[in-house]
Design a protein around this nucleic acid. Structure first.
Lengths: 361, 361
DNA sequence: TAAATTCCGGCAATCGATTGCATTTATAAA
DNA sequence: TTTATAAATGCAATCGATTGCCGGAATTTA
């Protein structure tokens, strides 16, 4: 703080030292009682005379008392804080899930600490450690693509932290889970393509150590089987889960002697975008010559030319579901024993990129 | 925890009670010294014999000691936590700023609590209160569009919390600020349009209670003046800062007796997208009949047809700058007195939507 | 060798809220 | 009126880490 001869310049930052916050002792002193009673009154416990209690509440309001969460946290061993770990927050699906979580937790007075794993297992481990260190009450996580070792998750559980997995989950860990029915969504997408008259449908698949990608592939295979369409391995491209890899895969597919007439980018809308850009560049008409279906309903899928058929995962709703699952589980301790998995049914959003029959929208 | 006759079923969640964490007392006890010395050793203070210190550090590592941040926070009155308040986290610019902040703070062992104001003043006040309540060390905020009252920010400052404003800032508050040079960027955009041969340039302006929109308008006016182009009020549309409002404004502009041949959507790329969609729907050719320039370099501007010229704000870099400003300010207490403002020069990204001269890219 | 420093490390208070136990007071029962 | 019971409140420890102050030991200086 800058001063000359003891005169403070209030226009200079920082203007003044922070005022001391009111404590329960201040309230107690003012009312000539002890802090115990104040605490009990504020926490709505018994063992306080209703009249005293009212007086305490009134005085607390007058003095603008706010519970010191640092002290409370230490004493209680709880922080009313939830940690969220996602691969990236600037990805639409994840940021929307966070929006949903936030809406639900905010009302209950919980705080969120948000971490990004950047798709790196090592970083994910660090995030877990940070959150344990911060004594969060709950960790909500969607796994990164790298690494099959989940001991860090078990480590968090061992610290008494409630763990909730969503979307990209480790099946073998018995935790609360909120997932999408990826297989079902995938089947619907393929069924739609077949009904539109596409005959040779290619699949861009994601890293198979993530179960979501396994399930999406399985939906593809099941749907083809159902319609008695033979599986052709040359139409299945591994690990095509970015825009660039999607583009590369498309160039490969379209140069086949017998190229596909539709591509299901099961990995993401980004890979679907890669497909579309290559198709446009090669002057292959979408949807008449090539049908394209993505996954995730990223906002841009609506504004590409043509717009891209995709699958909506109800991301905000998913976030709310996750948060509510936590509260439900923890406000009802005795009942809550078994691992629970909630599955959300995604929805196929049909747009121009698969409109082979040329139906006007 | 479920049990029958005292036998725990470890396969049932939660599997076991959390193990007690190691404290400095555990270390002290093991070494037959007091917690004071342990604390001093761990905090690298004097008054500890180097040999003892080494022993303490070794033992701490052995026992897997982790400082209890709850206790430390309470004692120190600091939390190594930074609160971030943005209008929406699922907006590209903001989520990228957060990414930048996170990268810089993560390394210093700081945590982030992220709040959304949802563009509501009331909610913004609540966020501030929450963060004060959580004893964050610093609040980083970009103001919401509603409300001119900033007493809640002053309230945070009065609580001894370092306040840093970015992008949408309240000029009259003397805090650290990181902003974009909006006026400059705006001038460059208009200059570019003029150089491309556009004659009648319309402006979609944002709510003028946010200084960023005032500055962008001012850049527009200055640029026109510089080129001796008369200002026409009918070409300036107020409050057109969403896709829908941008579309509406465009319909209005294009139905003028003397319509514009370019539109600068100074508010956002979303409004620029609204412009583009209306132009496409009306079969008005972009860029030959109508030039379009947006603001913010949202990812989708690259993939529209045609791609949209826009202004990049170096959002991730901005986030890093903000975080570093905080550290610089707080690691060097004596020097840091005056309010500092850092201005980042945005960059015009020229794409197809303003390529009237038809230059091949 | 005595006095003066310096260095180590312990003691105990502190940060606020919470809570089991003890004590006081009020009320009910005998 | 006395005893039993219940209700209200106080006392003091606790959650771990931090730190000012003090005393003893080691070292330096006179």
């Amino acid at each position: 703080m800058q001063s000359i001869a003891g005169i403070y310049f209030s226009h200079i930052y920082p203007p003044m030292k922070p005022k001391r916050r009111t404590t329960i002792y201040d309230i107690a002193e003012k009312l000539n009682i002890t802090a115990s009673s104040v605490s009990r009154a504020l926490n709505n416990r018994s063992h306080v005379n209703p009249a005293t209690k009212e007086l305490i509440l009134k005085t607390a309001a007058e003095l603008n008392y706010k519970r010191n969460v640092l002290a409370s946290n230490l004493r209680m061993g709880k922080t009313k804080t939830i940690g969220v770990i996602v691969p990236r927050i600037n990805q639409n699906f994840f940021s929307n899930v966070i929006v949903g979580i936030e809406e639900a937790t905010y009302q209950k007075g919980y705080n969120l600490i948000i971490c990004q794993s950047n798709e790196l297992h090592e970083r994910e481990v660090q995030c877990i450690n940070t959150l344990i260190h911060q004594h969060v009450d709950c960790i909500i996580i969607s796994l990164c693509v790298n690494g099959n070792d989940h001991s860090h998750l078990q480590y968090a559980i061992d610290h008494g932290i409630q763990l909730i997995q969503f979307d990209r989950v480790a099946d073998e860990l018995e935790t609360l889970k909120v997932i999408n029915d990826n297989e079902q969504a995938s089947m619907e997408a393929i069924t739609h393509l077949i009904e539109q008259g596409y005959k040779r449908i290619a699949l861009l698949e994601g890293p198979q150590n993530l179960n979501i990608f396994v399930q999406r592939k399985s939906g593809y295979l099941k749907a083809l089987n159902k319609f008695n369409i033979p599986i052709e391995n040359e139409l299945i491209i591994e690990n095509a889960w970015t825009k660039e890899l999607g583009a590369e895969a498309t160039r490969k597919l379209l140069s086949l002697p017998n190229p596909p007439d539709a591509i299901f980018a099961s990995t993401s809308d980004f890979s679907a975008l890669g497909v579309l850009e290559v198709a446009n560049a090669m002057h292959i008409k979408v949807p008449s010559q090539l049908g394209i279906c993505g996954y995730a309903n990223e906002p841009f899928t609506e504004i590409t030319t043509p717009s891209i058929t995709t699958i909506d995962q109800f991301s905000i709703y998913m976030g709310k579901t996750i948060a509510n699952l936590y509260f439900q589980e923890n406000e009802n301790k005795e009942v809550a024993i078994t691992p629970k998995t909630i599955s959300i049914k995604p929805k196929l959003i049909i747009r121009s990129s698969t409109n082979k029959k040329g139906v006007k929208e």
